[in-house]
Design a protein around this nucleic acid. Structure first.
Lengths: 196, 196
DNA sequence: GTCTATACAGGGATAGAC
DNA sequence: GTCTATCCCTGTATAGAC
């Protein structure tokens, strides 16, 4: 452990040259997220992403095992920035998340694309991400709903949770195709229906 | 469009060769729909679809201008068979449609995949299909809701309509990843919430 | 008109040089 | 650690056989 390399950020103290790779990987992730935010998720080939970042597509695959893995990491990065999307859990939080996301349609397009194809065979990274994401969200929302009502979690709360998540995702798809669709309004309406 | 031969019943044209083409096209569509129903929507290359049908991939492109166009036609075919999915319009019809669809997960996977990517640039066929589909469904459902309540259609009915459609689509995605998610149950729950 | 054969540009992925 | 070169597969376009 040579603690003389002083240029590394605090958390990158594990192994000398490994930390640099971690930092570079994060840079790539940040740039990729920017690109999707600005330019949208269109003809995203690894080569075009690489070009926009300033590396070859092979370099990207040095840090990420596949294109799919890179894209899922971008979604994870989005999650991490999403104004605590999953934090203040009384379910209406989803509409805050939706509002934030609506500022970056490119990221929504990336999300719905990956979600829609996540169940297809071969998309293992995406499948794992969305399976786990949905299961986690359902559990959190169902728990919050049950606590709100002072009841133990039952199947009705789970149904409600999947309904809320589904409505959020489905509305995003419609909004991408027709921005007169009101995502936040729809979710608030659902919230009002539930709070009775 | 050069229409030298005057108007005549499409069937009775020379040697019926045109009619045969139509029929062949329909055969291909039927086979494709079967394949997606049975084997799911996995590594669907035009070549593998063609192989399963018994033709080369080039033959498919003789009847359909692109792969995307073929897949969308399959979805249209599904619509046409969907137990009158959009007919008995009091919105709960969606849960009947969902129940039917649930018997063929491959077709749902095709649907969610195409829907999720329909807003991406370049997917013109899919974009047109889903834009029109969603707009049509919203209008129908909103009208039915308004009539049910004896009111004129307003923005609240439209919000409700997009919410119902979104819930249906979003629940399908979750169900593909985890079949413990109850699509019909979720939609019925939403229906109960609305009918008050 | 219907189809096969074939060519092509572009994609993701991999191997190995530096 | 990053690039070049390469591989195989994809969708698409064209030529021409029947």
């Amino acid at each position: 452990m040579d603690d003389e390399t002083a240029d590394a950020p605090p958390e990158a103290r594990k192994r000398g040259s490994y930390a640099k790779g971690i930092r570079r990987r994060q840079e790539i992730l940040d740039r990729a997220l920017e690109i999707f935010s600005e330019r949208g998720y269109d003809g995203t080939s690894l080569r075009s992403i690489g070009e926009a970042i300033g590396v070859t597509h092979a370099a990207l695959l040095h840090y990420f095992p596949s294109k799919e893995a890179l894209l899922i990491e971008v979604l994870r990065e989005r999650d991490a920035r999403g104004t605590g999307f999953e934090e203040h859990m009384p379910f209406p939080a989803l509409s805050h998340g939706a509002e934030y996301n609506a500022t970056v349609p490119g990221l929504i397009a990336l999300y719905t694309s990956m979600a829609g194809t996540s169940a297809d065979a071969g998309n293992d990274e995406a499948r794992a991400y969305f399976t786990e994401r949905f299961a986690g969200l359902r559990a959190k929302i169902a728990t919050a709903l049950a606590e709100d009502a002072g009841e133990p979690v039952d199947s009705e709360h789970m149904k409600l949770a999947s309904l809320i998540i589904g409505a959020s995702d489905g509305l995003q798809i419609q909004w991408l195709l027709d921005d007169s669709v009101d995502i936040a309004g729809g979710l608030e309406l659902l919230q009002r229906l539930i709070e009775r």
